[in-house]
Nucleic acid binder design. Structure first.
Length: 480
DNA sequence: TTTTGAGTTGTTCGA
DNA sequence: GTCGAACAACTCAAA
């Protein structure tokens, strides 16, 4: 008679290393039954978008392969998590259920349902931390309140000391002892088929734990030194590009923190660059902190007075923004990079978001929804907090008068226009001096570059100066 | 309780 | 062309 297994329920923690639920399950010496449940209805409107599903599919495949190497397999089930887990307990005779915490409002509800499903049974349900550096309950102001401002949050986090050392990956995972049925991953239809638009994603990304570590190692060795400045240049690979790996938990923030800090000791890294990187990890953390303590963050303005903002719903302008046809090259380049690769450089995210919200006066929720569907790193905490930050309605948000100028942002951060030329090839022949504002080019220059504005490339859908003033007026109206 | 210092990422204008 | 001020007070966090 074989011992009763422990179920390890994988969620957004698709890794073997630094996975406390998995490590704890193995430590019991019982057989381990790893499972992932496809439960697309649990998240409501925040069910993963198309690009996220693509990533999920490949990440699950990678996790399954990694488990197979260690003598186990990942079981795939679908349906509501509590039902699927109850069935799995019945079929396997499991004595325990271990899993990592998630922090999205819907995921917290899901956890409560799962716990309730095993109330009064002998199944030992255990929940572990791991997606964050610190648990949201553990970072409090002196008055015991959650933080609303980033810098004090950062200081408080630093005052708690370095996050604990990450756990090593288990060398082997004891098999479940008894065969249980599994869905076929391919049957979940996570990948696009007609048409298959994922070519650009495949070119740029390699989901899975192993790739996540390779990405971090490359970043620490290559880009971290110049991170403080280079991270703002969209034509340069100056950022870590870890966001999708972090979102799916292929790598933990503790691992990133630890490796960045120890890497610096052995190399010649500037403290400023390292601190800038750690601060970015903590921005992610701050977003989770906000979402955890203010669960309406994805839907409602954090600052309630923004409910009175005079937004203008304009489907045509929204569509032009989504398709990268606004007539502002840096905006269009960003939106096309997003569409093709499932990712957009952070600097450009701020520019396109500011443009949607302030130049077009379209509600930030519409932008967040588009990002949700198209980003491989779509993350409810980061996405919601960052859109609200740009809109001015968020915690510690950009002041209302901070309206990015899409022309000067292009000139400043894409000076030689390598980024714009790559993503907006129809204007690539324009000289640097006018490429960020094609409508200012003399006719002869446009002719020479083969451009007819309004035909081969759009005229600006709004005038910058007028749009800026309109946004300022909107904020004035809101405050009145 | 009251006070005080501080607060990611920008733009424009005028001297 | 460079530089500082204005943009608007407000809220937060800590002393």
């Amino acid at each position: 008679m074989s011992a009763k297994p422990i179920i390890v329920w994988f969620r957004n923690d698709l890794r073997l290393a630094d996975n406390r639920a998995l490590t704890a399950a193995i430590a019991t010496k019982a057989p381990v039954l790893p499972v992932f449940i496809h439960d697309p209805h649990a998240a409501g409107v925040w069910t993963p978008g198309s690009a996220s599903r693509w990533w999920l599919r490949h990440s699950l495949q990678a996790l399954d392969a990694a488990l197979e190497k260690r003598g186990s397999r990942l079981i795939f089930r679908h349906g509501s998590s509590e039902t699927a887990l109850r069935e799995l307990v019945d079929e396997s005779g499991a004595s325990g259920l271990y899993f990592s915490r998630s922090y999205e409002p819907w995921a917290r509800v899901q956890e409560e349902r799962v716990k309730a499903a095993f109330d009064g049974t002998t199944v030992d349900v255990k929940r572990f931390a791991g997606a964050l550096l610190r648990e949201p309950e553990d970072v409090r102001t002196k008055a015991g309140e959650p933080y609303k401002v980033y810098t004090p949050f950062w200081r408080a986090l630093m005052a708690l000391g370095a996050p604990g050392a990450p756990l090593p990956a288990p060398k082997s995972v004891p098999g479940p002892g008894k065969t249980v049925a599994s869905d076929r991953l391919a049957d979940w239809a996570l990948l696009p088929t007609k048409p298959d638009w994922s070519g650009g994603l495949r070119d740029m990304w390699s989901p899975g734990e192993e790739s996540a570590h390779a990405r971090l190692a490359t970043f620490l060795k290559g880009s971290l030194g110049g991170y403080a400045d280079q991270r703002n240049l969209p034509s340069v690979e100056g950022t870590s590009r870890l966001s999708p790996h972090l979102h799916f938990g292929e790598i933990s923030p503790r691992q990133c923190w630890q490796l960045a800090v120890t890497g610096r000791k052995s190399a010649t890294q500037s403290d400023a660059a390292l601190e800038t990187f750690l601060k970015e990890l903590v921005w992610r953390e701050f977003s989770y902190h906000l979402l955890f303590h203010w669960p309406t963050l994805p839907d409602e303005p954090f600052r309630p007075e923004f409910s009175a903002f005079p937004w203008e719903a304009d489907e045509d302008k929204l569509k032009a923004w989504q398709r990268g046809r606004t007539g502002y090259p840096i905006v269009d380049a960003g939106m096309r990079q997003l569409w093709h690769t499932g990712w957009m450089h952070n600097r450009v995210r701020m520019v396109v978001a500011s443009f949607l919200v302030k130049h077009l006066l379209i509600p930030w929720q519409a932008g967040a929804a588009w990002f949700w569907d198209t980003l491989v790193d779509a993350d409810l905490a980061s996405n919601s907090a960052s859109w609200q930050w740009v809109a001015g309605s968020g915690a510690d948000a950009a002041p209302y008068f901070r309206i990015f100028n899409p022309i000067t942002q292009g000139e400043k951060f894409d000076t030689e226009a390598a980024y714009v030329r790559r993503w907006v090839p129809e204007i690539a022949q324009l000289p640097d001096t006018v490429i960020h504002a094609p409508w200012t080019a003399p006719k002869a220059v446009l002719d020479k570059a083969g451009i007819t504005l309004g035909k081969t490339y759009p005229l600006p859908i709004v005038d910058h100066a007028a749009a800026r003033q309109r946004a300022l007026d909107g904020y004035a109206a809101m405050r009145a």
